[in-house]
Design a protein around this nucleic acid. Structure first.
Lengths: 345, 345
DNA sequence: CTGTTAGCGCATTCAT
DNA sequence: ATGAATGCGCTAACAG
């Protein structure tokens, strides 16, 4: 298969089809195909296919000042939470002819900023950010540049930015309903960092849901972890057990924190679920294989990513749009880390 | 809606600095800065900074047909094996001013091909491929296009392409040494698909290592799985137990297959490691939390990615031919799925 | 050393 | 309906 040394351009097609390059451009672009005779359009397209013509996005971008590229900011691709989200994003973008530029920010403001600069330089048409921290004004800065932005898995309180998240409060509610139905009353939360959107909202969800069930939110029944990590979860769980020794169920801010609980329970000779029930959040890979398999709130991560991409594409398509927030529904996955409370006092 | 696109171009800088655009280009590019007077260069750079000039890589790419972009092909980002590799790649690329375009091929030849076309169109300067299958001639086609290519986690028998892999044979040898030292003699392998590089090499490694230890490679002591997946591992393990009932240790082609073994053992009422020891491969996240925690061969995935990126960058830099294939060392992580064999027989 | 010129491949005017 | 001409922003070859 003798591939021409240099890619075949619109001019090659034009020569071969006996038309002007401009006509080829029109014929090949679905948007402008109407401007050209059906027959010639067909001929051009056939020739293009035969020659294996592929439009050069770089040249097109230079002309249209669009790059058909979107930047995706995530904290760390190594965190199992993100690959499915990315997959959802890429699938949609790909279908629409866009390419994703993915960068890891490590939740570091400086890295974030420098990556943003680089993406701006590369003329990204839009941005999707899955960075977790609430305490930077990234969205504000971005808005100033005029680059369309969609937030995934977090949102701004004022709803000023397009965002797609799951209904964290609903997720926590599902967890609490579940343990309440099992008969639990002394329920605690091991909350995630409050400077993250999910951490904070799940905390609020806990308070609200407890109130809904008329349950006591007593002192020390919520412990806040500073990171979403197993060790931090283990420490938080220890504090929790110290402050609220009679708790029979723990609703964790995410699966990692729940796993930390497993460790602390083991250390203290407590059994799960016999002594204490535990519910996670996210349904990360392999939590079904822990012992006991973890009851957790499943997040439709791939759909989260897909929805974010759709939102951005929509926004890129027809200019301005009311900022809105899409809320996806989580589901509860009941496994074996939850059971009715023991009959101690 | 006129978005203030990168209003400032090289021409704006030129006007402001009272020089010709060409001079600005030279002054701003470190490579050509030597061609211009120090003073004017300084002036130009100051003006550029003051105006907030940002070079437009698209325009530059159109001219130079380099994009400072490399394409990365992986089967599926959702497979926990790949994120660390990607992270290694991106870190190095980023340091060198390159950006990665990541695509998921699902090991589908058509998808692969169309992605390649797209990347070619986007003028990627090089490619890194982590796709697993051996039965396509992707590398050959790529070589024809002249785009530098580095393979990760697989290689070609003839060593005709730059590649970085781990020493699979060594990894299997570590696993076998370990169980041999524990006293095992009747050792089986649950091999991965033989049309993948890793699956095949680990199989060869098994044969070789068994021979080295003077152990019997009897009929049925190797079962081949068609995919790297838990269910397939469970099926393979069942076949293995049927064909080789007295086996006391199983060396699996990867962690997923090993987990499948757990399932089959449980189904058959066998205990691990009391009845049968199991060794995995890859040390995926959370396999330390299985019960029992999995003894496995750890692969330095992030370094794998970093090495691949380095290799490509080197190749992009001075066209010189560095080492053909880089082999990274795996390490054995001993946990609780391996123990001395039971005293039956 | 620096100004000039000429495209890279494409989309988009304006003519015809 | 199509051809011709123009430039997107930048770099490279050639003058001066």
């Amino acid at each position: 298969m003798a591939r021409p040394r240099h890619a075949v351009t619109i001019r090659d097609v034009a020569r071969e089809a006996n038309v002007h390059p401009g006509t080829v451009s029109r014929a090949l672009n679905p948007e402008t195909r109407g401007l050209v005779n059906q027959d010639t359009a067909d001929r051009v397209m056939r020739v293009a296919a035969r020659l294996g013509y592929r439009p050069n996005p770089i040249a097109r971008g230079l002309k249209t000042s669009r790059s058909y590229t979107v930047g995706v900011l995530i904290p760390d691709i190594t965190n199992p939470l993100f690959p499915p989200i990315l997959r959802g994003i890429e699938d949609r973008l790909e279908d629409a002819g866009y390419t994703a530029l993915i960068v890891n920010t490590d939740n570091d403001t400086d890295r974030e900023r420098s990556h943003l600069e680089a993406m701006r330089a590369r003329q990204v048409d839009g941005l999707i950010s899955a960075t977790a921290r609430l305490d930077t004004d990234l969205p504000g800065e971005l808005a100033a540049t005029g680059i369309p932005l969609v937030l995934v898995n977090r949102s701004l309180e004022d709803g000023s930015v397009l965002a797609v998240t799951i209904d964290d409060q609903r997720g926590v509610a599902l967890a609490i309903e579940h343990v309440v139905q099992l008969g639990h009353v002394r329920i605690a939360q091991l909350a995630g960092p409050q400077n993250t959107s999910t951490g904070h909202r799940r905390y609020l969800g806990f308070l609200q849901s407890m109130r809904t069930h008329g349950l006591d939110v007593r002192d020390g029944c919520v412990q806040i972890c500073r990171w979403f990590a197993e060790e931090e979860g283990a420490r938080g769980c220890a504090r929790l057990l110290d402050a609220f020794a009679t708790a029979t169920a723990i609703v964790a801010g995410n699966d990692l924190l729940a796993i930390g609980c497993y460790d602390t329970l083991a250390t203290r000779g407590l059994r799960c679920p016999a002594d204490i029930s535990i519910v996670g959040f996210n349904d990360m890979p392999f939590v079904n294989r822990l012992s006991p398999p973890l009851t957790t709130v499943r997040v439709p991560q791939r759909r989260l990513g897909a929805a974010a991409a759709d939102l951005l594409l929509e926004r890129l398509g027809d200019g301005a749009q009311p900022a809105r927030e899409i809320l996806l529904e989580p589901t509860l996955i009941v496994r074996e880390s939850t059971a009715p409370p023991a009959q101690r006092s």
